[in-house]
Design a protein around this nucleic acid. Structure first.
Length: 346
DNA sequence: TTCCTGCGCG
DNA sequence: CGCGCAGGAA
């Protein structure tokens, strides 16, 4: 339909939300907001965006900051590789582009952490270039609009939907088109409870006509998860920390001394394993247990308290008190435990 | 409690 | 193509 762009444009002007990164052409700000919003909802991302702008007013400020500081600001958002990549990209911009954000698609696309979606978003929002964004919202809107069954998580699907979007895009105002189609997906053409009766496209939507709205979009793969069992040692006086340097979850973030085991054992057997592995003596029963869910893992975490009645070798660890602890980037799991510790009596 | 959403990298 | 995080909805 030729009306597509016009219809959503009219709708967008009347229904757009006011967001801090809208109505700016500052490429740095747009980039930052897009990276934050990559796997995060607007409500959760807003404050992080404002924090980052405040702490790092320019790309150079971000590039020259220590990684620990960037991760600390990102703490709680998840997918921490985004923060590490953001930092790397800032350095790329500083050294390769003299601190000025690149203004063409291919240079933007080369930045670490910037894929097809984010490159198109920045190119259109900051530089008015005609690159259609294809994110989760766009997949949903277009799969329904065209009643298109091709799975979106395949190379073919990605190519097809990108073609659809680039054919529909308004070349006169690509930025508004991109904003409009995503906003429609976020507010009207939602995964559940879509409000088709107020949708500007409901006359021509093939998915609605076929009553297949909730069957779309189609995905081919289902995600598999594995279980992991973490045992953390907490010492309330003199907190022990270590940095996760492995290629694993939470890379470069901090946590308590950890023993990971293959499967759940009895408490006393577990205690033996922990003490043997770490050379630390702990209290006989755990003080807290959590199930922490990640995209591909279920982590069963148990927290044990360090027994402080005899000296032991803690030189492998960073030692700090509660106020120092606030300087370290820690995963949500550890943070959640600390919230409980600080609010109750241990 | 369980289910679901979200983009880029190696 | 498997993996990375957290939180809101059902």
């Amino acid at each position: 339909m030729r009306d597509f762009a016009l219809l959503i444009d009219v709708w967008y002007r009347q229904n757009k939300r006011n967001l801090p990164w809208r109505d700016t052409q500052n490429a740095y700000h747009i980039w930052l907001s897009e990276v934050i919003l990559q796997q995060t909802r607007v409500d959760q991302g807003k404050n992080y965006y404002l924090k980052f702008i405040k702490n790092f007013p320019t790309i150079k400020d971000l590039a020259l900051a220590p990684e620990d500081e960037v991760l600390k600001l990102w703490q709680g958002l998840g997918y921490y590789s985004r923060a590490r990549n953001l930092h790397t990209a800032a350095k790329q911009i500083l050294s390769n582009h003299d601190g000025h954000f690149p203004s063409n698609y291919s240079d933007i696309r080369q930045l670490k952490g910037v894929g097809d979606y984010t490159a198109a978003a920045i190119a259109s929002f900051a530089f008015d270039l005609p690159h259609a964004v294809v994110d989760g919202n766009v997949f949903r809107v277009l799969s329904r609009y065209y009643n298109e069954d091709t799975p979106i998580d395949t190379t073919l699907g990605k190519k097809l939907f990108t073609e659809y979007a680039n054919n529909l895009i308004n070349k006169k105002d690509p930025a508004s088109f991109n904003q409009a189609i995503m906003e429609l997906g976020a507010l009207v053409c939602t995964p559940k409870k879509a409000v088709c009766n107020t949708c500007p496209l409901n006359d021509s939507c093939q998915g609605l006509r076929a009553n297949r709205v909730y069957e779309l979009p189609v995905k081919s793969k289902k995600t598999k998860t594995r279980n992991r069992f973490f045992h953390y040692i907490y010492s309330e006086q003199n907190i022990l920390l270590q940095k996760r340097t492995q290629k694993d979850i939470w890379e470069n973030m901090y946590e308590f001394p950890l023993v990971e085991v293959e499967k759940q054992l009895t408490p006393s057997a577990t205690k033996n394993v922990i003490e043997k592995t770490l050379g630390l003596i702990i209290e006989p029963s755990p003080i807290a247990e959590y199930k922490h869910i990640l995209s591909h893992q279920h982590i069963f975490a148990t927290f044990w308290k360090l027994k402080l009645n005899k000296p032991m070798d803690t030189s492998n660890y960073i030692q700090c008190n509660h106020s120092d602890l606030a300087e370290y980037a820690i995963p949500r799991l550890i943070d959640r435990f600390l919230e409980q510790v600080n609010s109750s009596s241990f």
